[in-house]
Computed example of a mutant assay.
Amino acid sequence: MYAALTRQAILDAAAKLFVSQGFDGTSVDDLAHESQLSKGAVYHHFQDKKQIFEEVYRVAAEGVITSVVQATIQPDLIEPWDRANAAVRAAIQTYAAQPDMRSLLRQVVGVLGEERTRALDGEVAMPLIRGLLEELNALGQLQPVDIPITALMVFRLLSESSLAIALSGDPGEQARRVEVSVLTLLSGLRA
């Protein structure tokens, strides 16, 4: 239990510092100081600062997915397309509402590289996207498309949408514009 608490203290400190100071502006000494641990304790739990950032980003991305899942299980959403649209709206609005997530999103490719970022985002988001598409397909509400390819394309569309929100000076307004575009594009998949 102590190890889990120590690890969480490091991640909490890292989330705060990576947002406020950026990855490059944060040292392992800063992480140790902020978490009230020794530098050795930080290295005991993580190989390096990049691994810490990856875990902070993963936790934040999983938080977005949690918001999306909660939006899709509302009792008033009976129709499958309503759930799919609610999922898209929730993802977009979560990025617009969370400045910390937007900060991490602006940094992630520079820290982890594009390939690792895509893989990590895919691990977190693809099961949900694919599941929604498979549900729509099983109910005959999806155009005849290849599900794995379509899931990948929807994933990339949502990834680019979240980045457009993160890079905007007005995330709320950008989210409104992105939502209209994404929902319009996805409506073409409807049977």
Rank of each mutant, 00 (worst) to 15 (best):
M1W: 01
M1E: 02
M1G: 12
A4M: 11
A4D: 14
L5E: 13
T6E: 11
T6I: 10
T6H: 01
Q8H: 09
D12E: 14
A13E: 11
A13K: 10
A13L: 10
A14R: 06
K16S: 05
K16T: 10
L17P: 09
F18M: 08
S20T: 15
Q21Y: 03
G22T: 02
F23G: 00
D24P: 00
G25C: 01
G25S: 01
T26C: 00
V28A: 03
V28I: 14
D30H: 10
H33F: 07
E34G: 00
Q36H: 14
L37N: 08
K39Y: 04
G40V: 14
V42H: 10
H44Y: 15
H44M: 11
F46Q: 05
D48E: 07
E54Q: 13
E54Y: 01
E55R: 12
Y57I: 05
A60P: 04
A60Y: 01
E62D: 03
G63H: 06
G63F: 05
T66Q: 06
S67K: 09
V69H: 08
A71L: 08
I73N: 02
Q74D: 04
P75N: 03
L77M: 06
L77N: 04
E79L: 04
P80F: 07
W81S: 08
W81G: 05
D82N: 13
A84N: 09
A84L: 14
A86R: 08
A87F: 05
A87R: 05
A87H: 04
V88G: 05
V88M: 10
V88K: 07
A91P: 00
A91S: 09
I92D: 00
A96H: 12
Q98K: 12
P99Q: 12
P99I: 03
D100T: 15
S103H: 14
L104A: 05
R106I: 03
V109Y: 12
V109T: 15
V111C: 04
L112Q: 11
T117W: 12
R118D: 10
A119K: 15
G122A: 03
G122Y: 14
V124W: 06
V124C: 09
M126I: 12
P127A: 01
P127R: 05
P127N: 02
P127M: 04
L128T: 13
L128G: 11
R130L: 10
R130H: 13
G131P: 14
L132A: 13
L133P: 13
E135D: 15
E135A: 07
L136G: 08
L136W: 09
L136V: 10
N137Q: 15
G140E: 11
G140W: 06
Q141N: 06
Q143L: 07
Q143W: 02
Q143R: 10
V145E: 12
V145G: 04
V145D: 13
D146N: 15
D146I: 09
D146F: 02
I147L: 12
I147H: 12
P148G: 04
I149E: 01
T150W: 09
T150Y: 03
L152H: 06
M153E: 01
M153F: 06
F155A: 11
R156I: 08
L157R: 04
L158S: 03
L158H: 02
L163T: 08
L163Y: 09
D170Q: 14
D170L: 10
G172N: 05
E173L: 14
A175H: 13
A175G: 13
V178K: 01
V178F: 01
V178E: 00
E179K: 00
V180T: 14
S181V: 15
S181W: 13
V182H: 04
T184A: 13
G188F: 14
L189K: 05
